[in-house]
Amino acid sequence: MDIKAYIESGIIETCVLGIASEAEYREFQELCNQFPEIAEARKAFELSLEHQLMKEPLTPPSYLKEKIFQALTISGPKGLVDATKPEYQVPVRSINVWKYVTAACIVLLAGAMYWAYFINNKYQKLTRNSTTTNQSDHFSHTDAIIALNSFVVKPTVKWSIMAEPGNTSHCMAHIYWDSVSKNTFLLLGNIPKPLSDKQFQLWGILNDQPVNLGIFDIQKEGQLIQMENIPTAKLFYITIEPRGGSDTPNMKAQYAVGQL
C-alpha cells in the first residue's frame, strides 16, 4: 500500500471532519491501527484543526453557560454530579430567618465538635505510631500534631475527604490546601499498601492539567505528609504508579479523589 498517497489523498481530513462514508471511515480506522504514519497524520490534522478552531472563536453569551448547566444538572439520573455540594444535602423548604440562624449554629457546633474529635483522634494515632516512622521527608508525630493543629484552624485552609472513585463513603485520606501559602498536606486514612514495585502519587488539577504533587509510601494510618505546593487547585487525586512515580497519571489506577 502507498501510505504517502493515502495520506495525501484527503481521506484523513474527510474522516476527521466527519464527512466520510461509513465504509471509508471503517477502512481508515483499520489503517490507523496498522500504520503508525497514518495514525500520526490523523493526530497532526486533528491538532491543527483544533488549534485553528480555538483561535479567536466567536464567544457564546455569558448567560448561556448558566442556562445550560442548570439544564444539565437537574435533568434526572443522567444529570451531572454536582461535585461542589455534599451528596447528603437535601432541598430546604422556605423557612424564616431564625430557623436558618438556628440551623447554622447547630452546623457550626457539630463542625467544631467533629474537629475536636478528629484532631484528638489523629493525635492518639500519631502518638501510638510515632516510634515506627523513619521517613525523613514526612513529619515526626510532634511536628505533625503542631502542624495539623495550627494548619487546619486557619481560615485560608480548605480541606476535603479523598474517597474511592464511585464510593464516596469510603474515606481514603484528607487533603488540605492553604490558599495563601499554597502548602498541600495529605493526612492518610486506612489505605492498603500497594505492591512493593508500586507507589502512590498525588496529583492536583491546574488549568485542566494534572500536576505532580509527589509520591508517598504508607507507613501507618494517620500519617501526615507535606506534599508539593500548588498555586491553585480544586481537584486532587491519588493514583498508583510504578515506584519512583510517573510524569503523567495512570487514570486507570485512580485510587482516591477529593474536591475542595
Binding site: F69, T84, P165, L235, V257, Q259
Partner: peptide, 13 residues
C-alpha cells in the same frame, strides 16, 4: 476523562 465519564460537574464546566 474519568471525571467527565463520572459526569463530574467541575470537569464538565
Amino acid at each position: 476523562m474519568t471525571l467527565l465519564k463520572q459526569k463530574n460537574s467541575i470537569a464538565f464546566e
